[in-house]
Simulated scan of single mutants.
Amino acid sequence: MQDSIEQYMQTVGQQARQASRVLASASTQTKNNALSAIYTALQDSEAAILAANQIDMTKGRNNHLDSALLDRLELTPSRFKGMLHGLKDVMNLVDPIGEITDLAYRPSGIQLGKMRVPLGVVGMIYESRPNVTLEAASLALKSGNAIILRGGSEALESNKAIANAIQHGLKASGLPETSVQVINTADRAAVGHLITMSEYVDVIVPRGGKGLIERVSNEARIPVIKHLDGNCHVFVEAQADLQKALPIALNAKTHR
């Protein structure tokens, strides 16, 4: 079983690396066309995605997940619309790739500056929220990166259904379907391979609890973009406009 997981992860990594080379040279229009095609594919797949989410919800209840985790896991029609709205927001973002800053002439007369380029292949490990699958995939595509997504086992069916729609959109737009891949196993060994495949993955982004962050930080052989305990407090300065501060604080701390 371990050998098959390793072989599977090697294949995923190879496919992501190949896709990243195509994405790195993709124009803004091509990337936006892909995101638009994904939007359409998600709309067409709404019933299937919500049905897959109900499978995860049923398993979660049977496994006695606490109410907070179940709330993060659930996709309702209104939350699904929120996901689509977020995808449109990404489509409207300015393409960061190719932006040049800090141009300056050196004493030799050569002009030097910094140009934004894609990272390559991003590996992301996260928990619970299936909407993160779409958020991460869309941001990666907009910035010209391939992405490998490993969601929590509790959201496996939801994530696979969302990924299937994303890949349909990618195929329709002419970009490699393997630009976005969701790990289709809940085996924890897959994480161990993902965070050590330095020949295929350029950066790891863990998003979850302290235990996950610590494991990735300790075991990864790839650069990690991480948080740890997080910033969990809101402070309101004594002279602040309370009419403005109150709705901000309520939204930040009681939204869910």
Rank of each mutant, 00 (worst) to 15 (best):
Q10A: 13
E237S: 07
V205A: 09
D56N: 02
A26W: 00
L84Q: 03
V201M: 04
A190H: 03
R106D: 04
I55C: 10
I248M: 14
G152Q: 02
Q18Y: 04
L75D: 03
A140N: 01
L23N: 02
L84P: 00
L35S: 00
A34I: 05
A24W: 06
K31N: 05
E135V: 05
E157K: 11
G151K: 01
Q167M: 14
A140M: 03
C232L: 09
H64D: 11
L149K: 00
H193T: 01
R79L: 02
N92F: 06
R116K: 13
E46Q: 15
M1Q: 12
K226V: 04
H233I: 13
A47M: 10
Y8M: 14
A163F: 02
G169H: 02
E157S: 15
G113T: 05
S45Y: 00
E135K: 07
G60H: 05
S4Y: 09
L70C: 09
A68N: 07
K171G: 03
N184I: 07
A238G: 05
V122Y: 01
T196V: 11
Y200A: 04
E6D: 03
M115F: 04
K244I: 10
A19T: 03
D187H: 15
V132G: 01
E135L: 08
A220M: 12
H227D: 06
E135N: 13
Y8R: 12
R150V: 03
L42N: 00
Q29R: 13
I147S: 00
A249E: 04
I183Y: 01
R215V: 12
E46H: 10
L87I: 03
D187C: 14
L93A: 09
S217V: 08
I183S: 00
Q29C: 05
P176V: 11
A41Q: 10
P77S: 08
G13C: 05
R72S: 13
A136F: 06
S25Y: 07
S27A: 10
E177V: 15
S36M: 05
I213C: 09
A26R: 01
